[in-house]
Amino acid sequence: MPVLSRRAMLAAAPALALPTLVRAQGAWPTRSIRLVVPFSAGGAADSSARVLTPRMGETLGQVFAVENRTGASGSLGGLEVARATDGHTFLWDASSHIVNPTLLRNLPFDYATAFTPISLVVLFPSAVAVKADFPARTLAEFVAAAKARPGAITVGTQGNATAGHLGLLAFAKVAGIEVIHVPYRGGAAAAQDLASGAIDAVFTTLVSAGPVVDSGRARFLAVGTTERVESRPQVPTIAESGYAGFESNEWAGLFGPAATPPAVVSRMYDALAEAMAVPANRQRLIQIGCVPVGSRPADFARFVAEGRGAMATLVREANVRAD
Rank of each mutant, 00 (worst) to 15 (best):
M1S: 12
V3G: 10
R6K: 13
R6C: 01
L10E: 15
L10N: 14
A11T: 13
A12I: 10
P14I: 11
A15V: 14
L16S: 13
A17H: 15
L18N: 09
P19M: 12
T20P: 00
V22A: 14
A24N: 13
G26F: 11
W28D: 05
V37R: 05
P38S: 12
A41E: 15
G43M: 08
A45R: 02
S48R: 01
R50D: 02
L52N: 00
T53V: 15
T53Q: 02
R55Y: 03
L60C: 04
G61Q: 04
G71Y: 07
S75F: 05
L76E: 13
L76T: 13
G78C: 13
L79R: 12
L79Y: 13
V81R: 04
D86K: 11
G87K: 06
F90S: 02
L91M: 12
S95K: 02
H97R: 10
I98M: 14
P101Y: 07
P101S: 04
L103I: 10
L104G: 04
N106F: 14
N106H: 14
P108N: 10
T113N: 10
F115P: 03
T116R: 15
S119H: 03
L120M: 09
L120G: 01
V121K: 00
P125T: 06
P125D: 07
V128P: 01
A129T: 07
K131N: 14
P135M: 08
R137T: 14
R137V: 04
V143S: 02
K147D: 02
K147G: 06
A148L: 07
P150K: 08
V155I: 15
G164W: 03
G164E: 05
L168S: 02
F171Y: 03
V174Q: 09
V174M: 05
V179C: 03
V182D: 05
P183A: 09
P183V: 08
G187L: 06
A191F: 04
S196V: 07
A198S: 14
A201R: 04
A201M: 07
T204F: 03
L206Q: 12
L206M: 11
L206W: 10
S208N: 13
P211R: 10
P211M: 09
V213Y: 06
D214T: 11
A222E: 07
G224N: 11
T225P: 05
T226M: 14
T226N: 12
E227C: 03
R228K: 15
S231L: 09
R232D: 02
R232T: 07
P236N: 11
I238Q: 04
A239I: 08
A239D: 10
F246L: 11
E247C: 13
E247I: 09
N249V: 08
G253D: 10
L254I: 02
A258T: 07
A259N: 06
P261W: 09
P261Q: 10
V264T: 13
V265E: 07
R267M: 02
M268N: 01
D270M: 08
A273W: 01
E274L: 10
A275K: 00
A277N: 15
Q283S: 15
Q283Y: 04
L285Y: 06
I286Y: 03
Q287S: 15
I288Y: 03
G294N: 02
S295D: 14
R302P: 00
F303E: 09
V304I: 15
E306S: 08
G309F: 07
V320H: 06
D323T: 07
